[in-house]
C-alpha cells in the first residue's frame, strides 16, 4: 500500500486554477521529485500537503488514513489539522529558522512544546528534555553540524542553515519529508552540501517529496518524477525515464533549458 495517496486535488486562488486534478501516490521509502517551470503550482501542492493551503477538491490519504477530504468537513477541524500536519515535514526554500534560537534549540523547540502537552510531563521533565536534546544532537551530527549546535542562524552559512532546517523537520519523525526548492536560495558552491544530505536521507529510505530545479539530482536521487505544467501533472514516471526520455513536448522543452546550461 502506498504511504501517500493524493487524489484529484484542485486548488484555485480567486478565479485562477493553480492545481488541476493532481493525482499521484508514493510508496514508503521512495523519493518523489517534482519539477516544472515557475508558477506551475509546485509550491502550492506542497503547501496543500502541509495544510498551509486548503484544496478545493480532492483527498489526501497517508497510510490508509484520510487526512483530508474536501467533501468531508470533519477532516478539516482546526485542532486535528495541527496533529495531521505532523505526518509531513517541510523544508522551505528560505529555511525559516527561528533567529532567536541556536541551531540546537531550533531542532528541539517543537518536540519540547509537544511533550509539554502530554500527561506526566511535569514529573519527568528532566528525562524528557534530556532525551529531546540527545536526539537533536544526533540529528545535527548526522547533518555534519555537531560543532555548530550553539550557533545562532545568522552565524551560519545558508547551506548550514538549511541543514539545520532539515534536522528540525526530521526531529518530529514525519512520515513524509517535503522540500520546496531546498537549494534555490543558496550560492552555487553551497548547494552541494545540502544535496549530499538529502541524498543520504534517500539512501536511508526516507520517504520524500522534493520540489527541485536540480535535474541531475532529481534523476539520480528520486525514484519517481512528476513534471508539472500550468497546474496539471503532465508527465510522471520513473525518474531516469522521465528526465532522459520525456514523452511530452512540453517536458522536452523544459528539460532542454537545463541541458543547455
Amino acid at each position: 500500500m502506498a504511504i501517500l495517496e493524493v487524489r484529484n486535488i484542485e486548488k484555485s486562488f480567486g478565479s485562477t486554477k493553480v492545481l488541476k486534478n493532481i493525482d499521484f501516490s508514493l510508496e514508503q521509502g521512495q523519493a518523489l521529485a517534482i519539477i516544472g517551470s515557475s508558477g506551475s503550482g509546485k509550491t502550492t501542492l506542497l503547501r496543500c500537503l502541509n495544510f498551509l493551503e486548503r484544496p478545493d477538491k480532492g483527498k489526501i490519504v497517508v497510510q490508509g488514513e484520510t487526512l483530508f477530504d474536501a467533501d468531508d468537513p470533519a477532516t478539516m477541524r482546526e485542532k486535528d489539522v495541527r496533529m495531521k500536519r505532523l505526518h509531513f515535514g517541510m523544508v522551505f526554500q528560505s529555511f525559516n529558522l527561528f533567529p532567536q534560537y541556536t541551531a540546537l534549540e531550533n531542532v528541539m523547540l517543537a518536540n519540547q512544546l509537544l511533550e509539554k502537552e502530554k500527561p506526566g510531563f511535569k514529573e519527568h521533565k528532566k528525562e524528557i528534555y534530556a532525551q529531546i536534546e540527545e536526539h537533536a544532537k544526533e540529528l545535527l551530527d548526522k547533518m555534519g553540524l555537531s560543532d555548530r549546535a550553539d550557533h545562532y542562524p545568522h552565524q551560519l552559512s545558508g547551506g548550514q542553515q538549511q541543514r539545520v532546517a532539515i534536522a528540525r523537520a526530521l526531529a518530529l519523525h514525519p512520515d513524509i519529508l517535503c522540500f520546496d526548492e531546498p537549494t534555490s536560495a543558496l550560492d552555487p558552491e553551497l548547494t552541494g552540501e545540502v544535496l549530499k544530505v538529502i541524498r543520504s536521507l534517500a539512501d536511508q529510505n526516507t520517504t520524500m517529496v522534493i520540489v527541485t530545479h536540480e535535474m541531475a539530482f532529481a534523476r539520480d536521487v528520486a525514484d519517481q518524477v512528476i513534471f508539472m505544467d500550468e497546474g496539471i501533472i503532465l508527465e510522471q514516471g520513473d525518474a531516469r525515464q522521465v528526465i532522459e526520455h520525456p514523452t511530452q513536448e512540453r517536458t522536452k522543452q523544459f528539460l532542454s533549458r537545463f541541458a543547455e546550461k
Partner: peptide, 23 residues
Amino acid sequence: VPKGQQEAGLVLGMTKSQIFFKV
C-alpha cells in the same frame, strides 16, 4: 516578522499561541 516564521511554526505542529509567544 516574515510570514515564513509563522508557517515554519505551523508545520512543526505548534499552536497559534505557541507561535506567538515562542517565535
